[in-house]
């Protein structure tokens, strides 16, 4: 099948045609692939459950509850005066991931944290560790009473989820 098309015009036209067809075809392949990829994202029923409300009225000072939100534990802690002051007093220069305490809470009494260690996803234990906060048993990360990383392999502070106060004794997560 030798190409005996000496006319350059025809040749250009064919090349243009082939390129155009391939381009149009590629767009189509992309459009077909997208639903196949997109289907693995959270579906609309999962997204709809993404916010929950937590009642705070039964939590006493110094106590902490854990609620399940988006399949992850969320710590809600009513901090004592001492814990608040110690968290506020910390020199930011000492911190690996410097963040003042007041940027991490909406009301200083209430600390809300995603209870997932920022190292590799284990759940830290409350009231353990060297800094009066949390301690992750998997690889030994220590968090302080503001949930900030103080010692160990975790790179960042415990994440604060999006939440808001709806009324004095209720927060809405997500």
């Amino acid at each position: 099948m030798s190409e005996n098309n000496s006319n350059p015009d025809t040749k250009n036209r064919r090349n243009f045609l082939t390129v155009a067809t391939t381009a149009v075809g590629a767009v189509g392949v992309g459009a077909v692939v997208w639903p196949v990829i997109s289907q693995m994202n959270p579906d609309s029923s999962v997204k709809a459950l993404a916010s929950i409300e937590v009642d705070l009225s039964k939590i006493k000072e110094g106590q902490e509850i854990t609620v399940l939100w988006r399949g992850k534990p969320v710590f809600v802690k009513r901090r004592t005066k001492e814990e608040i002051t110690s968290a506020e007093k910390v020199d930011l220069k000492e911190l690996k991931d410097p963040q003042p305490d007041n940027k991490r809470v909406k009301k200083s009494e209430w600390l809300v944290l995603v209870g997932v260690c920022t190292h590799l996803g284990c759940v830290p234990i409350s009231g353990k560790g060297d800094y009066g906060g949390w301690f992750c048993p998997c690889h030994g990360s220590h968090y302080d009473s503001s949930g900030r990383i103080r010692k160990g392999p975790a790179p960042t502070n415990l994440e604060v989820p999006t939440y808001e106060f709806v009324g004095d004794n209720k927060i809405k997560l997500g």
Binding site: P35, D43, S44, S45, V46
Partner: peptide, 13 residues
Amino acid sequence: EKIMRDVNYGWLL
């Protein structure tokens, strides 16, 4: 039916 309703492009698939 969940595939048809909730899953992204589930109805199409």
